[in-house]
Computed example of a mutant assay.
Amino acid sequence: MGWDDYVAAWSGLHGGFDPRTASLVVRGWVLLAYRIGSFLGRKRISPLTVTLAGLSLCLAVPVVIGLAGPPAGLAAGALLVLLAAFADGLDGAVAVATGRVTRAGYVYDSVADRLGEAAWLTAFWLAGVPAWLAVAAGAGSWLHEYLRARAATAGMTEIGAVTVGERPTRVSVAVTGLLLAPIAALVVPAWTTLVLTVAVAIWLLLQLAGLFQLTAAVHRALR
């Protein structure tokens, strides 16, 4: 599939959003995903294989942190989250580039995303974050995606709004927290848990803000 055809198909799956009109970072990421997705497609690697690889990386985060502990486990966890996020962007690219987009694949990808985020928050809990905060952050993420899915079922044809609580934001918060915590520990060891707790608190606040944005957009779309 050529670049223009890929953009047209990708845009159709993302509420009509054209990545060529987006920021340099977004355009660059979509182009990179297209090229790598096309390469994987030529190697006959299926979108589901990439999805499962990304989920496996996510599930490995709490295992690594539980076994290695801080600071090495936290740094390794940050790397795993980054790799998982990369895989998450590539499964869709493979599907679009090879013309293998399916409704089942869309559902599997969404389920894998939610399970992956639950694994990240489990890792934060293992590293000392209060359980109630980790659960609240996970619930906020789930509600954010559930609201959009139900709105689509009710007839909303677009994504509603690109909020401050989207998945890339969750990835950024998780990676930043896991990287800053071991650095803070070099100064004061007790700061490890503090930094991780602040990261999850920011995650939760962004989900709440995103829910407010998305609720307003859904109300306008379905009014």
Rank of each mutant, 00 (worst) to 15 (best):
V187R: 12
A137Y: 10
V195Y: 10
L40E: 13
V162D: 04
A190I: 00
A8I: 00
L82N: 06
P130D: 10
V61R: 04
F39W: 12
A127D: 05
L83P: 04
R103C: 03
P130Y: 13
L55R: 05
T102Q: 12
A184K: 05
E158Q: 06
A217F: 11
A161F: 09
D5F: 01
W3F: 14
A199T: 03
A151P: 01
A185G: 15
V195Q: 07
A112I: 04
S38I: 00
V111E: 06
G155A: 03
G105C: 08
D113A: 14
L52N: 08
A9G: 12
A131P: 03
L59V: 00
A118I: 00
G210M: 11
G210W: 04
G140K: 08
G128N: 08
R27F: 05
V173S: 07
D4H: 06
G160W: 02
G77Y: 05
S23C: 07
G41H: 01
V188K: 07
V198P: 15
Q213W: 01
L24F: 07
V187Y: 08
W125N: 08
V175W: 05
T102D: 12
T193K: 14
R148N: 02
V188T: 09
S46W: 09
T98P: 07
P47V: 02
G140C: 03
G210P: 10
L82Q: 06
G140Q: 06
V25L: 15
